[in-house]
Computed example of a mutant assay.
Amino acid sequence: MGTCLCKPKSRRFKQRRRLPTSTIESPLSDTHLIVNDSLDYGFHGEHRLIDGRKFHNVENSRYMMPCDDDEWERLHVQHYICRQTWKGNYSAPMNERLITGGALVLDAGCGPGTWVIEMANEFPRSHFTGIDLSQVCPREQKPENVNFLTHNLLDGLPYNDNTFDFIHMRYLISAFSEKEWKMIIKELVRVTKIGGTLEIMEDEIEPRNDGPISRLLFGALLSDLRSRDIDVTAYTHMIDMLKETQQLKEIKSEEMSVPFGKWAGRIGTLLAENTGRVFLTFRARFSSHLGVEREEYDKLIEAWYEELNEYKPYNIGYRFWAQKR
């Protein structure tokens, strides 16, 4: 097994129930992700059920998304949308180091561990650690160069200074206030080795060139996030936050346009379906915000799918990377 890079405090857990998962197939190609194991669910007061969905119950976390099988499936598909759109799992110039140098890599907020396991299989000479708020990462039959840790990023990172060669974090735009973003970036930089690289990826939440139904649905989402003091435009000042650490050099960024809807082919269809699942997750909350019954809300989402083909919206994704000096 891979070497553990930390010594988390021991904790007592109640009996855990294991829910089996099968080998996961990429929705975009014949590529398979080797995750033929169980997802480890710990029922120990850290989760709560809302409308049949399981959510974390961590008091100091603003993160709003569920932590159950349906959500991990959605995140898995989101991973392949991202990889296909960007033509790769990262943009920073790390390829040679990952192949030959035995790099130590951290994925902060790893979710179901899709990125970690795929990268570990691609770069067997490097070691990958995934850290996430919820203990639902693959635990069995994972590559030997992988380990996972359940930990809240808002509590700081349980690693020494200058530990990792490469740190990756993406899609946490719905998790942090501006103050928390700055604290977490400072922590990520702290545990990055001198000469190591940090890469952060986020997408705009609300698509561009969208129609009236889209603005209603995304308006409900944005209103909910802002009510939690979430920094919904962190990507607009990400470079400034990276510069504020005064420990990074060669700060660079890249943008990518991503289309919504069947009009845009397989990627657009998957992205629309993926986003639609988010809207359905919060049916009760968003329908109340919009002042409609649940049945009307479901019809609104169906109409939104059709509207996408008329307005042909898109959103912009951003990758930021820098080297620690």
Rank of each mutant, 00 (worst) to 15 (best):
E206S: 13
D229H: 11
E206T: 11
L217Q: 08
D231L: 10
A234M: 11
L222D: 02
E206H: 05
R226H: 09
G219V: 08
A234S: 14
V189S: 08
E204C: 01
M238H: 03
R190I: 07
I239R: 13
G219N: 10
I205P: 05
L198Q: 04
D210Q: 05
V232C: 13
T245I: 04
D203M: 13
G195E: 13
L225E: 07
E244Y: 02
L216A: 06
D203L: 10
S227I: 00
T192K: 12
E206D: 11
T245G: 05
K243M: 00
L216V: 07
L225D: 06
D224F: 09
V189L: 04
T197N: 05
L217W: 08
A220I: 00
E202T: 04
D210T: 12
R215K: 15
R190M: 06
D210I: 01
A234K: 00
R208Q: 14
L222R: 06
P207H: 07
P212M: 03
I205Q: 07
G219R: 05
R190S: 14
R226N: 14
E244D: 11
F218I: 00
L242P: 12
D203Q: 06
N209H: 15
I200T: 00
I200P: 05
L198T: 05
L225M: 15
T236I: 01
I213N: 04
N209E: 14
L242Y: 06
G195K: 10
I205Y: 06
L198K: 01
I239D: 08
P212T: 07
L216N: 04
A234N: 03
T192L: 15
P212L: 05
E204Y: 01
R226W: 03
L221D: 03
L216M: 15
E199H: 03
V189E: 07
M201C: 13
K243I: 00
E204K: 04
